[in-house]
Design a protein around this nucleic acid. Structure first.
Length: 100
DNA sequence: TCTATGACGCTAC
DNA sequence: GGTAGCGCCATAG
């Protein structure tokens, strides 16, 4: 499980500036396909001061899965990186999705 | 053990 | 394209 976290974090750390990746994508690249929920779980337990770019992680629809305050923080950071949001609050994965 | 839950994904309609 | 349903798997109670 710690190994899982380590892999997940390593992958997230590789997401380039101005790009985003989905939970499932990250789990898959870390070698744990089907563990999308656990990625979210791991991120949910992150300390606030973490240097991990957790804000570049979104769900498969291109939406931010958070609510309230955290949601606003994540959205503003992404916008500062140049990521555009549609009217529905969605990211265009075609354009900003991280595809190694 | 059993059940509920979660920052999710995929398929079918 | 939007929604609904089912699958996924570790953890907590």
């Amino acid at each position: 499980m710690d190994q899982f976290k380590a892999q997940i974090f390593a992958v997230i750390h590789q997401i380039p500036f101005g790009k985003v990746a989905t939970y499932g994508q990250i789990a898959k690249m870390a070698g744990y396909p089907g563990y999308a929920r656990h990625v979210g779980k791991a991120l949910g337990s992150l300390p606030e001061g973490s240097r991990l770019p957790w804000y570049r992680v979104i769900n498969g629809k291109g939406e931010i899965s958070l609510k309230g305050d955290s949601f606003l923080r994540q959205r503003s950071i992404l916008m500062e990186e140049g990521v555009e949001f549609s009217v529905k609050g969605r990211v265009r994965l075609k354009e900003f999705g991280w595809q190694p």
